[in-house]
Design a protein around this nucleic acid. Structure first.
Lengths: 192, 192
DNA sequence: CGGCACATTGATACCGATCAATCGGGGTGG
DNA sequence: CCACCCCGATTGATCGGTATCAATGTGCCG
């Protein structure tokens, strides 16, 4: 079992026709359970998106720790629920949101997750994802992602720099995305 | 906490613009954990798709049972992993598969799940989903679902009757869908 | 300085949405 | 018992959002 310490990774799957779909982003603090291997062959891959620092925990260490510290077990379980909520939100995005809504929604999600782990500064946060990666996560083309980002920039809701995003008008972004932060179950760290 | 005994249900979310996205189908044997309520407000709804029979288990009963029978706890955990795999497969479908591939993939998934719980007969299984429900699950329009089903029928891979599907050429369907049953983690019940 | 990955922009094609009408069957009220 | 009604299925015509193809720009690194 792995835990991201620095940098980003993603879960992905390559289809027979060669296209890639990213199913989740792993940010610092996220656990990356490869235990799926035990059940059957892995049904998807995991790869880093940036250079990253990763902690490795053996199955034995993990179960020992979870038995000894029920709080940790509870936290892991809670994190799992959040991950599921994120997956459901992605399904909703891919199914029923337009491209600009999808992009806006992902930005909202990533910003709040960065906020939760203390990686934001005045509406700005690191987002080291190339447009190709964003496209593969959102089920779109890199070309079209580019146009959508341009539109969001022209609407004045955000600004892009190399590997970081600044939310200029968060309210507007939330409104475009139809974002409801409920599913991230943020209960602590309300401070900005 | 609930467990489906008979009939089907679904998890869904209604967007601000009124459209609905279904995120999962619950078939007999599936657990439907409403414990999410504990964390925050529910981020989605659950509703039956057919008339259904449902078992209700209190939180206390459940945790008592899981402590007393580790096998049950392990089975619940395993079922959870399968559910996550299904969600990831849905994300892949919505992001990178064409409409006919999506429909074919869902049929493969539902057929195998029906097979696992012993609800199939010679390639036929009950699928009590209206085209509107299918559309909301696949992120498409009911009109277009209809056309895709027509095409699958004309390709000779399946036949539709009221509330049931017959797979005439499973291999062809699997090939269209690019289906890999790995993620369902079927290890038992190999018999047809 | 050259190469390479990523970002940007334009022109065109196509898939699936949308709008609209008809059909079919099963249940209901008179 | 029958006419009506309503929901789901089906089909046609048209529109629009994204993909696709292609070319160019830009910054970083060796």
């Amino acid at each position: 079992m792995f835990v991201m310490l620095e940098g980003w990774a993603c879960r992905y799957k390559i289809l027979p026709n060669g296209s890639r779909q990213i199913m989740a982003f792993l940010m610092p603090g996220d656990a990356c359970d490869l235990h799926i291997k035990l059940l059957a062959e892995m049904d998807h891959g995991i790869q880093t998106v940036t250079t990253a620092k990763v902690a490795m925990i053996t199955r034995d260490e993990m179960s020992a720790m979870m038995q000894k510290h029920p709080n940790i077990a509870a936290a892991m379980y809670s994190a799992q629920l959040v991950d599921e909520g994120i997956m459901r939100a992605w399904i909703v995005s891919m199914g029923r949101r337009s491209s600009i809504e999808r992009v806006a929604h992902l930005l909202c999600e990533l910003y709040l997750r960065a906020l939760n782990i203390g990686l934001t500064m005045h509406g700005e946060f690191e987002m080291p994802l190339s447009q190709v990666v964003l496209a593969d996560a959102l089920g779109m083309t890199a070309v079209h992602i580019n146009r959508v980002l341009k539109e969001l920039r022209m609407l004045g809701v955000m600004a892009l720099k190399r590997g970081s995003v600044t939310l200029l008008e968060p309210e507007k972004l939330i409104q475009i995305a139809g974002f409801d932060e409920n599913y991230l179950h943020r209960r602590q760290r309300r401070a900005v």
